[in-house]
Design a protein around this nucleic acid. Structure first.
Lengths: 342, 342
DNA sequence: CTGTTAGCGCTTTCAA
DNA sequence: TTGAAAGCGCTAACAG
C-alpha cells in the first residue's frame, strides 16, 4: 500500500502538504494540488482506512449479530442491511451465533474492541431461553449505539425493529375465516421464541373472537427432534383442518406436499399459508401462500435507525438519547395458488 | 473505551509498563503485573483492535466477496468461512455483489484500503459474461493474498477451491444408468456460467460414453425470464424422460412437484437428482436426491489456504509464492426417496 | 524493573 | 503557501 509519506518523498514536499492537497484544502496552491493529485492517481493511492479510523475514532463499520446465517429470513435481513449500509457509506462485519449464547457474548466482546461504530443484533435462541441479558446490558453501557431486530427483549433499552407477529397471524386467521374456512390449524416449530408465542397468541385470540371458543388440538407444536413429515401428516388426518397457517417457512411447504400426497385438493380442501418469501413459494406446487416478513426492509430500517443514533452521537444532535423507538414493519400477505384468492 | 493511558494514569506508572504487564513481559515484576491486571479487568479493558492493526500492519480480518448472499450455496460457503476464520482468529467483512461487476470492483477497491489481510472471492456472473478481469489482476499485484472459489477464472493466478462439476455430473449419469435408467434428462438455469458449462459437458460426455450417442433434446436450458414450472412440465411430457438431473437447486424440487402433479410415480417412473443440501431436500415430498456441494467445506478450505498464504507472507515461510494450488472438494450424492437406492 | 521515545498513516493546529 | 509537530492507542527498542 502506497502512503502519504511515499508520495511526499517523491514530490519533495511534506506529508501534511500532500494530505491537504488531496483534501482540496484552500491552504494549498492550485499548482501543488494538481501535482499531488496526479501522482496520487498514478500510484493508485487511496487513504488507509485503519489509520483514519484511529485518527477519527470512527470506523465507518457496523457490526451485525444474527442467530443463523443459513436461515433464509436472516440472510434476507442481512441483505437489506448490506444495501442500506452501502448507501450510508458503512461496511459491515457479521457474526452468526448459531443460536448460541456464548458465541453471542464473544461477538459483542469483539465488537467492543473498537472495530465498529454501532451494532445490529437479533439475539440467539439460547439467550432467550436462559433469559440472560447481562452481556447486552454491559454492552449498552459502553455508549456504542445498538439496534435490535426480530428477536428483541424489553430488558434492553434501545431502538428496535420488528414485525407485529400477533396482528399478522390474527389478520391471516380472519382472512381465512372470511373465505369460509371453519377449521383453521396452526403449526409451529418455534414455540419457545417470543415471536413464536406472539404468533400463537394471535392465532388463539383470533379463533376465540371468531368462533367464540378455542380448540387446543388445532395447534401443532413440532420440536427439533420430531419428524416433521410424520407429525404434519397425522395432524391433518386427525383434525381434518380445512386450512393451515404455519409459523415458519419449511412446514408450510411440507404441508402442501403432504396434503397432496394425501389426495387433498389444494386450496379447495386445504388452504395453506406460511411465513416465507416468493422464492420459497416456488418450492411447492401449487405455490405456497406466503406471509412476507420483509426482511430486506427490516434490515434497511435497522441501519437507518442505527445511523441516526451514531450521527447524533458524533455530531451531538439534539435527539433525546434516552428515548428509543420501536419500529413495526408491516407484513404482506402474498397469495399463491394454495389459498382462495377471492 | 478505556485505554492503556487511562490505566497508566490511575496506577501512576507509564503506558509501556502497563502494556508490558498485560502481555506478561518478563521485564515486569510479578507484583506490578498483578496490580495492572487487576485494574484492567475491573475496568473491563480490552486492547483497541484498530490501534493494533495500525501498529502491526495486520488487521486479522478477511474480506469476502460473494455473488449473492441470498443464494443458499453461497450462504453455506459463508458459514464455512465464518467457522474456519473463527478458528484461525480472523473476523470477516462480507460484500454481496448481486452478480454485478461494478459492485465487485467497488468491493475490491474498499478492500485495498488496508482493512483486510486477504480476500476470498467468487466472481459475479456479469464479470464472467463480460470477460473482464482487470480489477482482479490489479488487485493481485497488491500483494494481498487472494483465494477464489466456485466461480473461478484461469486468467488470475491464485489459490482456488472448486468442486469437479464435470466429474460430479458424469458420475451421476453413470449411477442412474446403472440403476437401469435409459432416458436421462438434464435441466439447467446457469448455462452461461463456467460451472454450468462443466456440468452440461459432464452430462454430454457421460451420455455419449454410455449410449454411444447424445440426444440434444434431453437438455433443457431455462433462462431467467422463463416460467420454470411451464418449461419443466413440457420438457417432461415431450421427452418422456425416466430421470432428471438438475444443475441447480430449485429446478430439482420443482421437477418433483410437477412430476407428481402429472401423476408420475417417483422414483419409479421418474428419478430426480439436483444440486442442493439436506434442508432443501425437505421441501419436497418425496425428498429430492441431492448432490451435496459441501459449501461449508469449500468455505473452510478457502480460509485455510488463505491463512497459509498470509502466514508465509508475514512470517516469510519457505513456501514458493508463485506456485498456486487448485483444491477440488469432493461432492456427496445423498439419495432421497426420489432415486432408487439400490 | 520501569520509563522514554519513536513510529504505524493520517489529520490538524500552529509556526514559518 | 508550506512545513513541523502533536496525537489517535498501541508496542518495542533502548536507556536508565
Amino acid at each position: 500500500m502506497i502512503t502519504l509519506k511515499e508520495l511526499a518523498k517523491e514530490l519533495n514536499v511534506s506529508v501534511s502538504t500532500v494530505s491537504k492537497a488531496l483534501n482540496d484544502s484552500p491552504e494549498i496552491s492550485q499548482q501543488t494540488i494538481e501535482k499531488v493529485k496526479k501522482l496520487a492517481s498514478e500510484r493508485n493511492y487511496s487513504p488507509n482506512k485503519i489509520a483514519l479510523s484511529l485518527k477519527n475514532n470512527r470506523t465507518l463499520t457496523i457490526g451485525v449479530v444474527i442467530p443463523d446465517i443459513l436461515n433464509r429470513f436472516y440472510s434476507t435481513v442481512l441483505n437489506g442491511i448490506q444495501e442500506s449500509a452501502d448507501r450510508h457509506g458503512y461496511d459491515i462485519i457479521t457474526f452468526s451465533t448459531k443460536e448460541s449464547l456464548v458465541k453471542e457474548m464473544d461477538s459483542l466482546q469483539i465488537f467492543s474492541r473498537g472495530t465498529v461504530d454501532g451494532i445490529i443484533i437479533a439475539i440467539s435462541e439460547e439467550t432467550i431461553n436462559k433469559n440472560y441479558f447481562n452481556h447486552l446490558k454491559e454492552f449498552s453501557l459502553k455508549n456504542i449505539p445498538l439496534v435490535m431486530f426480530d428477536r428483541v427483549t424489553d430488558k434492553i433499552n434501545c431502538d428496535k425493529v420488528i414485525i407485529d407477529d400477533f396482528q399478522t397471524i390474527y389478520n391471516e386467521v380472519e382472512n381465512l375465516y372470511k373465505q369460509g374456512r371453519r377449521k383453521i390449524g396452526f403449526i409451529s416449530t418455534i414455540h419457545d421464541l417470543n415471536v413464536g408465542k406472539f404468533r400463537a397468541n394471535g392465532f388463539r385470540k383470533a379463533s376465540f373472537d371468531l368462533y367464540g371458543f378455542f380448540d387446543k388440538n388445532l395447534i401443532l407444536k413440532i420440536s427439533k427432534s420430531d419428524d416433521k413429515h410424520v407429525k404434519i401428516k397425522n395432524f391433518i388426518k386427525k383434525t381434518g383442518v380445512d386450512s393451515v397457517i404455519s409459523a415458519d417457512i419449511i412446514c408450510g411447504v411440507i404441508t402442501i406436499n403432504i396434503a397432496r400426497s394425501l389426495g387433498l385438493n389444494i386450496p379447495r380442501q386445504l388452504a395453506v399459508v406460511g411465513f416465507g418469501d416468493k422464492t420459497i413459494s416456488d418450492y411447492s406446487t401449487p405455490r405456497l401462500s406466503v406471509i412476507e416478513q420483509n426482511g430486506n426492509q427490516i434490515g434497511s430500517r435497522s441501519v437507518d435507525l442505527l445511523v441516526d443514533r451514531m450521527n447524533s452521537k458524533w455530531f451531538g444532535l439534539n435527539k433525546n438519547l434516552n428515548v428509543f423507538s420501536t419500529e413495526i414493519i408491516p407484513t404482506n400477505s402474498i397469495p399463491g395458488e394454495s389459498k382462495d384468492n377471492t
